[in-house]
């Protein structure tokens, strides 16, 4: 079996002369939670629609569970659960009836799964209430229930927290984390709410104007966003030794251009500066750096917009 659950190769979607998605390459490994970040209209849903078979690529290809080609991909879609854009529900049916229609079309044996899924998702109390009378949050939950009904190996969720109240968001996050942990469920989740994804995803793909700007792990993102002192001295090797010996810290890194990123002493810059100058080092640059996730995203997107 392929080690990748999903791989897109130069995935492109063009409407007339406009690119909705351009040359996107992403990879998802088993058990990963991949967060697709992007503004509204960035191309997140377009990508998910192509991955789920709702739309067709203008160029490039999709590999799902190691399968490519139309009929093989269709077969592979049986192993996924997905909500793309709004949850697709029958408004005149109850929650159970919606699940029953889905169970029948997927050929899932036995009706027990309906009761169990409704309990898992916290909708077992809805009884004969029609979906048209559900709140947006309840509809989102029911959409998730449809996804989970067939015990998928790969979950694709497009803005799943839309309409959920704060408690609902926390519950959903915990549920997804639990499913990921216990069932090794791979999740591809899109959102324009960065803080929400930051607490869930293990890998991030930042999409802007149809292009994948950056793909990075949660650790890499944390490193980029972590507050630090940015130091440039005339002798970086000696600078590193001073930090280790005199300030007793190894929580720093020396970049290829000689810049030192120090993650300690943010509240005592003077002590760092004195330690370095006392050893005859010339400080060319010393500043406090680090971004919030939102700032990092804004800077990244902004730099592209200015190009």
């Amino acid at each position: 079996m392929s080690e990748f659950i999903l791989k897109t190769n130069h995935l492109t979607k063009k409407y007339n002369h406009d690119f909705a998605l351009h040359d996107v390459n992403i990879t998802l490994k088993k058990g990963e939670i991949y967060g697709v970040i992007g503004q509204n209209g960035a191309g997140k849903s377009t990508m998910l629609r192509m991955v789920t078979g709702l739309a067709f690529p203008s160029d490039g290809s999709i590999e799902l569970f190691g399968k490519t080609g139309t009929s093989e991909l269709t077969e592979a879609h049986k192993r996924i659960g997905a909500i793309v854009e709004d949850p697709a529900l029958f408004p005149n049916m109850t929650a159970s009836e919606n699940l029953e229609a889905h169970r029948l079309q997927k050929g899932i044996p036995g009706k027990d799964c309906i009761k169990n899924t409704l309990e898992l998702i916290g909708l077992s109390h809805t009884g004969n209430k029609k979906v048209k009378n559900f709140s947006l949050g309840m509809k989102q939950r029911l959409g998730l229930a449809l996804c989970l009904l067939s015990n998928p190996e790969f979950l694709i969720l497009d803005e799943p927290t839309n309409g959920l109240d704060p408690m609902g968001i926390i519950e959903l996050r915990e549920l997804l984390k639990r499913l990921n942990r216990e069932k090794e469920l791979t999740i591809l989740i899109s959102s324009h709410i960065l803080s929400e994804l930051h607490q869930l995803a293990t890998t991030f793909g930042i999409i802007h104007k149809g292009k994948l700007l950056e793909e990075l792990t949660a650790n890499e993102l944390d490193q980029k966003c972590r507050q630090h002192l940015r130091i440039k001295v005339d002798n970086p090797n000696l600078g590193a030794t001073v930090l280790e010996d005199n300030l007793s810290t190894t929580d720093f890194e020396v970049l290829s251009d000689g810049t030192i990123k120090l993650y300690r002493y943010l509240d005592n810059v003077r002590k760092v500066s004195m330690a370095l100058t006392n050893h005859g080092l010339v400080i060319e640059h010393l500043s406090e750096n680090g971004d919030s996730l939102e700032n990092y995203f804004s800077k990244l997107v902004g730099s592209v917009d200015h190009e």
């Binding site: 789920t52 709702l54 592979a76 192993r79 996924i80 997927k106």
Partner: peptide, 8 residues
């Protein structure tokens, strides 16, 4: 959408 995404 559900039918198409279900692998039918």
């Amino acid at each position: 959408k559900n039918q198409v995404m279900s692998g039918n």
